[in-house]
Design a protein around this nucleic acid. Sequence first.
DNA 1: CTGAAAGCGCTTACAG
DNA 2: CTGAAAGCGCTTACAG
Lengths: 337, 337
Amino acid sequence: MKTYTIKDVAHLSGVSVRTVSRVINNDPHVKAETREKVLKVIAETGFEANLLAKSLREKRTNTLIAFVDQHRGQFWGAFHNEMLQEMMKEARRSGYRMVISSSSADSYTEDENDGFYLLKHGMADGAVMFDTKEKDKRVEYLRSKKVPFVILGKDRDHFDTSYVDLDNVYAGYLAAQYLVSKGRKHILFMLGNRDYIVNQERAEGIRRYLAENPDPGRQARIEYDVGNIEQAYSRTKEALAGTPRPDAIFISGDERAIGVYRAVYEQNLRIPDQVAVLGIDKIAMGAFYHPPITTIDQQIPAMAQTALRILFQQLDGSGQNGMRTLIAPSICERQSV
Amino acid sequence: MKTYTIKDVAHLSGVSVRTVSRVINNDPHVKAETREKVLKVIAETGFEANLLAKSLREKRTNTLIAFVDQHRGQFWGAFHNEMLQEMMKEARRSGYRMVISSSSADSYTEDENDGFYLLKHGMADGAVMFDTKEKDKRVEYLRSKKVPFVILGKDRDHFDTSYVDLDNVYAGYLAAQYLVSKGRKHILFMLGNRDYIVNQERAEGIRRYLAENPDPGRQARIEYDVGNIEQAYSRTKEALAGTPRPDAIFISGDERAIGVYRAVYEQNLRIPDQVAVLGIDKIAMGAFYHPPITTIDQQIPAMAQTALRILFQQLDGSGQNGMRTLIAPSICERQSV
DNA sequence: CTGAAAGCGCTTACAG
DNA sequence: CTGAAAGCGCTTACAG
């Protein structure tokens, strides 16, 4: 099937290209009769305006891009999925299309197939950056080129970038406070990689609570590098074999908690009686663990909406630089603590 | 920061636009010295060729788009994620960028923000279609416009479309066979919505095995509309309350199996001793359930690669229409049966 | 090895 | 209410 251009439609309906452009853009200054005529031809030909040409001319694509990292061969998980879903809804409501692409802080420069290439080369108007690193070159780039973007997470390298993040210090604080308030004495806090700001902050919050509320009968320990389900499993297994055996485990990420659960059950221990498990994220799936996992709510919908609104403001020029929003976490009580 | 065009670079380096175009496209017919000069200016200016213009001119974007449906407010899950990951790797290897977008069979026509809009309007060269429906208008559209695409799943409406699918009849057959071979007598098969071909086929395979191997002492039942974790949970709960109590459950989708596990454990039953659970998909997470779930392997990497290769052939014109590949499922034995 | 010019398919002042 | 023409930023025969 031939693919028609605006020119074809113009010829076929006996008007100028300018007029066709008017009708496809809903310009009111077209005689009803003319509009009909053109619309008819469009319907018959199946004409669709070429977005490449339109965007090139208008210098905007009306599409946003969200970058997610394929962490070391692993993929984004349920948390990212839920966040992305909310963002897509929000984008749609505001007349933007949103597309997801993978991009990694490390490989973007050389790799033409890293999704970041699309943004650098003008295929999107703005970006949501997940999984940024410290001194992330992509952030540097977007900043210097004045491309609208918002970070999901924290940026300590600049003052003028915008981000939305959970208050992770508070999240750590809450985690410690909650577990202690439930009478737990031997608490293991399992966090991801130490290089990520999020984990540093959670550790800080945990330490702060512990320091503020000393208890000689308590033992608490922070472990890093628990970066996926498998590690959550093996590290929990090790921990449960030690003495004293932890009676509570905080695990960074509800999804990874699956590994914790398995290790606990393999020792024939019960959750929460013998070992309490506290997660964070509040992904939907967590409500169906056995038992449903008590977790720290990241307020995924609020985070997503806030991030996109900041981005929209940058896009229409009404936003200021360096808008930073910290979302307050809260405990979602279920049955694992 | 000013954004430079090829024209700026040409002026700045004292050559023509044509020559700049040559160096950015690695045309060998450029004097080394000239190339140096141009490259230097490019580095200094931070020039990046505009992809919109390039694509408009070349009539190809070098990007592929994968469409995933947000099923009724739910999002795609771990299975989709793993499939998408494999596809992105494969695309990258072959010099394509790949982007993910949400699109639904129902809303794509009216909705400018449905991702399908991008493809219709020329922002990608080809598509991978997840979650198509029967009489899917999008498939109709792509077919008539001769846009390269491949379906992940089945298409019964045409002969000339290409797809890659698991042999779902065989998968159902295998599920029944395996569970029966393990001596299970009261088997519950939980499938998703009856309107999806995949579920019809799995049911067919199950029935075929059962019919071929009659056993008066056996009771087997197929239930539909178990479409998410929550339903898997509640329907399992109901089933376990009935008599005779199932001693084996096949659940369509490892992720949904989480709900099955929970319901089983809440009745203080043991897996697999009292209730065997067989999943399908072989998502990574399943290896960390308690116990690790025995599942039907969908061969995700093979499926993804096959799909993309078919798409590549269509893109370079070497492919024929109607390439259909059926992947053979196999049992991945772990500890839940 | 290099360049002038046309053209990809749109939109947009500017005229009328 | 409608149109002729320039221009968005590239690539590509065609010449030389």
